[in-house]
Simulated assay, not measured.
Amino acid sequence: MTRPVRIRGIEDARLVLGVARDCGRAVVLVSPAGAAGYLGGGWWAALTALLRDEFPGTEVTAVLDCADDPGHVLAALRAGCTELSFAGPPEVAAKLADIAAQHGARLHPPATDTVEPWRESRPRAALRALLAAFAEPTPPGTSPPGTAGR
């Protein structure tokens, strides 16, 4: 799997998924930092559903950043989000991970070393290089870990 790619919204996501589709690669999208608190889980769930409709067959793991607020994690779970990151204390993260698992979701540590395409002078070329360097092609008919059924 490749380094996570932080997106700011739908246009960034379309760019990333277009390149991933063209390269036949799986990709991990990460929301803006703390997005669960100011954009909400409903926004992320709707965005990822739209992207999956627009890019069928492109494997994507879409992680909503909940910062260090357990309430944002719980609200995102209620909104149907299945991949969440949490930056709070480990003992709280363990409890939230258990709750997430009961909802068929996963809790991740905060994304580090993300790629931010809007900071690149040639974002499409930078994404192609990233996907070629860090990812293995996804064999047809299979899903990378954590993306089955999404």
Rank of each mutant, 00 (worst) to 15 (best):
E91F: 11
L64M: 04
A33F: 14
F86Y: 13
G57Y: 10
E59V: 09
L51I: 13
V60Q: 05
T48V: 09
A93V: 08
K95D: 12
V27H: 03
R52W: 15
D65S: 00
L47T: 03
A49E: 15
A62R: 07
A62D: 14
P90A: 14
A36F: 04
R52C: 06
G71L: 05
A49H: 08
K95H: 11
T61S: 09
D53L: 08
G34F: 05
L96N: 01
A67M: 04
L47A: 09
H72P: 00
L29R: 12
A94L: 10
P56Q: 10
W43M: 07
G80H: 05
V63P: 03
V73P: 04
A49V: 12
C81P: 02
V92R: 03
A33Q: 10
A76M: 11
E91Q: 12
A67D: 09
W44R: 06
L64S: 01
P70F: 04
E91W: 13
L84C: 02
D53H: 11
P70V: 04
D65K: 00
Y38V: 08
L50R: 13
A75L: 09
R52P: 09
A97I: 04
L29G: 14
A33C: 13
V28H: 08
V60T: 01
V30E: 14
P89S: 11
A93M: 05
D98C: 07
F55R: 03
A93H: 02
T82Q: 06
A79D: 09
A79F: 06
L51A: 14
V60A: 06
A76G: 05
T61C: 11
A75N: 13
G71Y: 00
D65I: 03
G42E: 08
L77K: 04
D53A: 09
A97E: 01
A97G: 08
C66G: 02
A36D: 00
A49M: 10
P32Q: 10
L77R: 01
L29W: 02
V63R: 11
E59A: 15
A46Y: 08
G71E: 11
A75C: 09
A35M: 03
L77T: 00
P32N: 12
C66K: 01
L51S: 04
L39N: 12
A87H: 02
L50M: 15
G40S: 09
V30I: 03
G80V: 11
L64T: 01
G71W: 00
A45E: 11
L47E: 05
A62G: 15
P32Y: 09
C81H: 08
V73S: 10
V92H: 02
Y38M: 02
L74I: 07
C81V: 09
R78D: 14
P70G: 04
L51C: 08
L64A: 02
V92G: 00
L51P: 07
P56I: 12
P70W: 00
A87R: 01
S85T: 03
G71H: 00
D98F: 11
L64G: 02
A46K: 14
A45D: 12
S85I: 01
G41I: 05
G88I: 00
A62C: 15
G42Q: 07
G34T: 01
L47K: 12
